[in-house]
C-alpha cells in the first residue's frame, strides 16, 4: 500500500516544462531521494509536494488523501530548507515551538524539550539562530519540522551548506532520527554519494523527468542510460563501434557500453599471465594520475578513447605517467545501454 503517491504531475513556467509527467509512489517510512543536477526539477517537485508551488496537471496523495490543491498549512508535511529559514527573532525553543503554537497544541513545552533532546541541542534552548553554528542551525530546522509530527518530511538539500565532516555526521544522524521516528522522507540532493549512503530508494531526475528509480545498488550497478551512468558514478561510456574496435570482438550488442572505473584493472606491459578468458584486454598509455586519498585515478589513453581507471591506493604500486599498460575489462561488468 503506497503512502505517498504522485500521479502524472506536470508543471511549466512560460512555455518551459519543469516537471513532465512525474509519477512515483513511496511506502510508509521509506527514505527516498530525488537526485539530479541543478535545474532538473527536483526542488520544484519537492516544493509542489509542500504546496509552495502549484502544479498544472496531475495529483498528489498522502496517506490516501488528495492534497493537490490544499494550502501548505493543511498538508501535514514538514520541510527543511537549504538555508534553514530559521526565524531570526526567536530563540531555538521558540523556533521549535512555533508550529505547535500556531496549532494551539497542548503540552508544547514537553514536546519541544523531547525534540531538543532528540537532536542533541540541550543547553541551546535560549540561543538565537545567529549564535549557532551551521550544523546546529540545521538541527533546529529539522526539529522544528519534526515536532509537528508531519506525515512526510521534505528535505531540500539540507546539508549542502555544511562542511564535509559535519555533513557526514549529520547524514548519519538524520538517518538515525528518520529510522527512530519511522517517518516517510523525501530528500533532495545533487550529490550522488549522499544519495547512495542515505536512501532506501533513489529517483534520478533529468530535465523534469524521472529517468530511473531503484535501490542505491540497482542504480549504481545497472544504470539504464548514458545520463545515469555518467551522473551516478563516473562511468566510462563508449559507443559500441569504438568498443568493438578496441576489443576486436563482435559478440556484443547494444548502443553504448558503460564500464565503472573501479572494475578495470591495470597491468604493466610485459606481464604475461593475463586472464583473457574473463577479461578483454585493451592496450594503452597512462596519460595522467591523480590521487584522491584512498583512490588512485588513472586516465589511460588508448587508440580510440580515453579510460578512467580507479585503483585503491596501495603503497608502492602506483604506475607512472607515460607507462605502457594493459587495461583488463571484466566481460561481465560491461553494461550495454540501449540508448
Amino acid at each position: 500500500m503506497s503512502y505517498v503517491t504522485i500521479d502524472q504531475v506536470t508543471k511549466g513556467y512560460n512555455h518551459q516544462v519543469v516537471l513532465e509527467n512525474i509519477s512515483l509512489t513511496l511506502k510508509k517510512g521509506e527514505f527516498a531521494t530525488l537526485l539530479g543536477q541543478s535545474g532538473c526539477g527536483k526542488s520544484t517537485l519537492l516544493r509542489s509536494i509542500a504546496g509552495l508551488e502549484d502544479v498544472n496537471e496531475g495529483s498528489i496523495f498522502i496517506d490516501g488523501k488528495d492534497i493537490t490543491h490544499l494550502s501548505p498549512r493543511n498538508r501535514e508535511v514538514g520541510m527543511v530548507f537549504q538555508s534553514y529559514a530559521l526565524f531570526p527573532n526567536m530563540t531555538v525553543f521558540e523556533n521549535i515551538a512555533y508550529g505547535l503554537k500556531m496549532k494551539k497544541a497542548k503540552d508544547i513545552k514537553s514536546r519541544v524539550t523531547r525534540m531538543i533532546e532528540l537532536v542533541d541541542l540541550i543547553g541551546k534552548e535560549q540561543s538565537y539562530p545567529h549564535q549557532l553554528s551551521g550544523g546546529q542551525q540545521q538541527r533546529v530546522a529539522l526539529s522544528r519540522a519534526l515536532v509537528m509530527e508531519p506525515k512526510v518530511l521534505l528535505l531540500d538539500e539540507p546539508l549542502s551548506a555544511l562542511d564535509a565532516k559535519i555533513r557526514k555526521n549529520l547524514q548519519k544522524e538524520l538517518k538515525r532520527i528518520q529510522k527512530e521516528l519511522d517517518i516517510t522522507t523525501i530528500f533532495v540532493t545533487h550529490d550522488q554519494e549522499e544519495a547512495m549512503t542515505m536512501s532506501d530508494r533513489i529517483f534520478v531526475m533529468n530535465k523534469g523527468k524521472i529517468v530511473q528509480s531503484g535501490s542505491p545498488t540497482e542504480i549504481y550497478t545497472s544504470p539504464v542510460n548514458t545520463f545515469v551512468a555518467k551522473f551516478i558514478g563516473n562511468y566510462n561510456v563508449l559507443s559500441i563501434d569504438v568498443f568493438r574496435k578496441l576489443v576486436q570482438s563482435t559478440e556484443i550488442d547494444g548502443n553504448e557500453v558503460a564500464i565503472r572505473p573501479e572494475v578495470l584493472q591495470l597491468v604493466a606491459a610485459g606481464e604475461n599471465h593475463l586472464d583473457l578468458q574473463a577479461n578483454w584486454d585493451i592496450k594503452g598509455t597512462i596519460k595522467d594520475v591523480s590521487m584522491t586519498g584512498n583512490v588512485l585515478r588513472y586516465e589511460v589513453e588508448t587508440e580510440e578513447s580515453a579510460f578512467l581507471v580507479d585503483d585503491l591506493h596501495h603503497q608502492g604500486k602506483m604506475l607512472e605517467q607515460g607507462a605502457q599498460v594493459h587495461i583488463l575489462v571484466p566481460k561481465k561488468e560491461c553494461i550495454m545501454l540501449a540508448n
Binding site: R73, R75, M79, F81, F87, Y98, M102, R144
Partner: peptide, 16 residues
C-alpha cells in the same frame, strides 16, 4: 531576511 522563505517556512508550520 529572506522574507519569502520565512513565509514559506511559517506557512508549512501552520501559520496563515
Amino acid at each position: 531576511v529572506n522574507a519569502i522563505q520565512l513565509v514559506d517556512a511559517a506557512e508549512l508550520l501552520g501559520a496563515t
